[in-house]
């Protein structure tokens, strides 16, 4: 009698403890799950918060004269037209030079090079370039293009610096795009008697176009948002170039981009209204670029699926 009671008690105990164990485990799982949700919510609300705050503070600053005039005490105007022109010029000069070099580099790596030491070194160099922070590019640009080559503070110095910075972006995206072109396209073209370069020019590049354009757009986004690499290379002038001849001379003169002007407005000039106005413009550009790359990647996927 006593013995069976003892056994029953023991069973009861283990049942209770295993029940407690299950409850504990469920609680632990629930808490883990909650923690994951909280972290995700934090990441998302961060973005929403940033966009909302910048728009609330800055949208009132933006009007036609803010976008089309230059800040001048004499005329009593506040505007960023000069910075917009500088940004466009830097983007144009940089991309006109960087795109062919980046695409060419990707073509060499993907189509011509045989696996070996040279390819390893080139890929190592590209990876290293991608990992160098922009302030180092800025220092190098200032020392080499600005002082050694005598370009001083100018849009050209800034652009040359940025070329090195965006090169890996274009090379990588082009490489990825080239890898997705099926091998039979290449074999087909060569089999029909096309030369290698002819095949690359007429088959591969058009097929890889969405990838190349994605790289170019991402690079433009990087340039528009860049500040540390430009502060000591392109300078901070904000006047508008006068007429066509002024525009032609502009690359050799100092000029601050939107981002640089935003930095100066928020720090040394202490003009936060202008800073938030520019921040809104920058955010809109970033949003547009993001949208465009999304579209392109989708299109890219469709062509891949149809193969």
């Amino acid at each position: 009698m006593d013995g069976t009671l003892l056994i029953e008690r023991k069973e009861n105990k283990t049942m209770i403890s295993s029940k407690r164990h299950i409850i504990n485990r469920k609680l632990k799982d629930l808490m883990t799950r909650m923690l994951i949700y909280v972290c995700t919510l934090f990441s998302v609300s961060l973005l929403i918060g940033i966009i909302a705050y910048v728009f609330v503070r800055g949208i009132g600053v933006i009007n036609w004269s803010f976008l089309t005039s230059v800040t001048s005490v004499l005329d009593g105007t506040v505007g960023i037209a000069g910075n917009i022109v500088n940004t466009v010029l830097i983007v144009l000069i940089t991309m006109i030079i960087a795109t062919p070099i980046g695409v060419g580099s990707a073509i060499y790596l993907n189509e011509y090079a045989k696996k070996g030491r040279l390819v390893t070194i080139i890929e190592f160099a590209t990876e290293t370039l991608a990992g160098i922070p922009s302030i180092i590019f800025g220092l190098f640009g200032m020392m080499f293009f600005g002082e050694k080559l005598g370009l001083g503070y100018s849009l050209l110095t800034g652009s040359f610096t940025l070329i090195l910075m965006v090169l890996p972006l274009i090379t990588r995206n082009t490489q990825e795009a080239l890898k997705t072109v099926p091998k039979m396209y290449r074999d087909g073209a060569i089999g029909l008697g096309s030369g290698k370069w002819h095949m690359i020019r007429t088959i591969l590049i058009p097929c890889a176009m969405p990838g190349i354009i994605t790289g170019v757009i991402l690079a433009i986004g990087r340039i528009v948002g860049e500040s540390a690499a430009l502060l000591f290379t392109a300078g901070s002038a904000k006047h508008l170039p006068a007429g066509i001849s002024g525009l032609l001379q502009k690359p050799f003169q100092s000029g601050g981009t939107l981002t640089i002007q935003m930095y100066l407005s928020a720090t040394s000039e202490g003009n936060f209204d202008v800073a938030f106005g520019i921040a809104v413009v920058l955010l809109i550009i970033v949003l547009l670029i993001n949208l465009m790359t999304k579209r392109l990647t989708k299109k890219f996927d469709v062509t891949r699926q149809s193969n």
Binding site: I48, T259, A279, L282, L283, V286, L287
Partner: peptide, 21 residues
């Protein structure tokens, strides 16, 4: 998409918000 956008926001904007908030 939110994470991608966070990556694309220029660092000066993070700086500005840090200053203000």
């Amino acid at each position: 998409s939110a994470v991608e956008l966070l990556a694309a926001i220029p660092s000066v904007i993070y700086g500005l918000l840090g200053m203000m908030l």
